Amino acid sequence: MRVTEKGQVTIPKNVRDRLNIGPGSEVDFVMSDEGVMLVKTGAGRDEFESFEEWAKSVEGKLDTGGMTTDEYMEWLRGPRDDLDRR
């Protein structure tokens, strides 16, 4: 995402839909050493005090279908042309 001169970014539609964010919704940013997480504030929002707390809540929930990490990353990103595959 690109930040405008006014410091604004557009929240992608799939994120807005998933968090049920619409005009008038309020959001906040939870910061940690690892990055920033956008959260919807107000009624019905999951309460996470930190990025680490959120990360722990989703730990182990990704099903890679038995693929290794390397196999999953290649499936996700496509093959790497810059690696020597002997």
Results as ranks from 00 to 15, higher is better:
37 M>E: 00
85 R>C: 04
41 T>C: 07
57 S>G: 11
84 D>K: 10
24 G>M: 03
66 G>F: 03
67 M>Q: 13
56 K>M: 14
34 E>R: 10
40 K>E: 05
1 M>D: 08
10 T>E: 07
18 R>P: 00
62 L>F: 15
28 D>K: 08
29 F>I: 12
16 R>M: 15
62 L>K: 01
33 D>Q: 02
16 R>L: 07
37 M>F: 07
46 D>Q: 13
27 V>N: 00
74 E>S: 10
79 P>H: 14
53 E>T: 04
55 A>H: 06
53 E>R: 06
28 D>Y: 01
41 T>H: 03
78 G>I: 09
55 A>I: 00
53 E>S: 07
55 A>F: 08
9 V>T: 03
46 D>F: 09
55 A>Y: 06
2 R>S: 11
8 Q>R: 14
3 V>H: 06
4 T>S: 15
20 N>R: 11
16 R>W: 04
19 L>V: 04
71 E>F: 04
9 V>C: 09
77 R>Q: 12
47 E>F: 10
85 R>K: 15
49 E>R: 04
73 M>E: 14
9 V>R: 09
26 E>P: 00
2 R>W: 09
80 R>F: 03
6 K>H: 11
38 L>H: 05
46 D>T: 09
35 G>K: 03
29 F>H: 06
8 Q>K: 14
39 V>I: 07
25 S>D: 11
64 T>Q: 06
78 G>Q: 02
49 E>N: 05
15 V>T: 08
57 S>T: 06
5 E>M: 14
55 A>R: 02
34 E>W: 01
33 D>S: 00
61 K>R: 15
39 V>K: 01
64 T>R: 14
29 F>V: 11
67 M>F: 12
70 D>R: 13
17 D>Y: 09
56 K>F: 04
8 Q>F: 09
77 R>T: 12
38 L>I: 09
45 R>H: 08
76 L>T: 14
80 R>E: 08
71 E>A: 15
52 E>S: 13
15 V>C: 02
3 V>C: 07
81 D>W: 12
5 E>S: 11
22 G>K: 14
23 P>C: 09
40 K>G: 08
81 D>E: 15
20 N>W: 05
52 E>P: 01
35 G>F: 01
65 G>R: 07
52 E>A: 13
7 G>I: 00
35 G>A: 01
58 V>Y: 02
79 P>K: 15
47 E>A: 05
42 G>E: 00
41 T>L: 02
18 R>H: 13
8 Q>H: 10
56 K>D: 15
59 E>R: 13
4 T>L: 10
43 A>H: 05
83 L>F: 11
46 D>S: 13
6 K>R: 12
9 V>L: 14
13 K>M: 10
70 D>L: 15
19 L>M: 10
21 I>K: 03
74 E>Q: 12
62 L>C: 11
34 E>Y: 00
26 E>H: 07
58 V>N: 03
61 K>A: 13
65 G>D: 05
59 E>T: 12
46 D>R: 08
25 S>Q: 04
62 L>S: 06
18 R>I: 00
7 G>F: 00
25 S>H: 03
71 E>I: 11
31 M>C: 07
69 T>D: 15
67 M>W: 07
32 S>E: 02
34 E>G: 07
34 E>S: 08
6 K>S: 13
70 D>H: 10
28 D>L: 07
82 D>L: 11
19 L>W: 03
43 A>R: 08
36 V>W: 06
15 V>Q: 08
68 T>Q: 06
32 S>V: 05
65 G>N: 05
14 N>D: 09
24 G>I: 03
12 P>T: 12
67 M>I: 13
